[in-house]
């Protein structure tokens, strides 16, 4: 059977083919209630899209609201559709595409444990110092560094320091906010 014949047998027509993809940071204000995260994640997983990173925490105890920051890579159509779908969820109050909105700040936090000989530990310490990472735990054989920066910077830091005895990494997703005086 040729490709054309196969196509004609489908009830659903053709796939639109490859499109350009881009990375977007979405900021979502939600009611802090059970199941809200699952509803949001379901929109992504239900369409087969992977989330690059996700950060959730309560931001207002009084209003019982949480902010979710999602970083996702997709085509413009997919991103538009996901934003519209997010916005119509009942517990979602506001969805902002910070990437489209303009200049904004994004920060990830990483904890990295280095355990090695004195020579490597010293080198690791120098790198951490150069990047402005903080020593959060220290023994004779190990360090735990804490470093906060953009995703790309954190990647770069980890790449440099990892060869000197990386034992464990724990990092958050991005927390994000727009620049200037606007609310988002």
């Amino acid at each position: 059977m040729t490709e054309d014949e196969k196509k004609n047998q489908s009830v659903y027509g053709d796939s639109p083919g490859e499109r350009k993809i881009a990375r977007h940071t979405l900021s979502i204000l939600v009611d802090n209630e059970p199941g809200v995260l699952s509803r949001i994640i379901g929109l992504f997983s239900g369409r087969g899209y992977n989330i690059d990173s996700l950060t959730v925490a309560e931001v207002s105890e009084k209003l019982n609201q949480s902010r979710i920051t999602v970083v996702i890579t997709g085509t413009p159509d997919v991103i538009e559709q996901i934003i519209n779908l997010l916005a119509r969820l009942v517990p979602v109050h506001k969805v902002t595409d910070l990437t489209v909105l303009g200049p904004h700040i994004e920060r990830d936090l990483v904890l990295i444990k280095i355990a090695s000989n004195q020579d490597d530990l010293l080198k690791a310490y120098d790198i951490a110092n150069e990047y402005g990472a903080i020593v959060t735990d220290k023994t004779e054989e190990s360090y735990v560094f804490q470093y906060v920066d953009t995703t790309a910077k954190v990647d770069e830091f980890l790449e440099k320091i990892t060869p000197f005895g990386m034992k464990n990494i724990s990092r958050t997703g991005s927390a994000a906010m727009s620049c200037g005086k606007e609310k988002f």
Partner: peptide, 8 residues
């Protein structure tokens, strides 16, 4: 009435 129908 559903914004997610637009340009879908």
């Amino acid at each position: 009435i559903d914004p997610s129908s637009i340009n879908k």
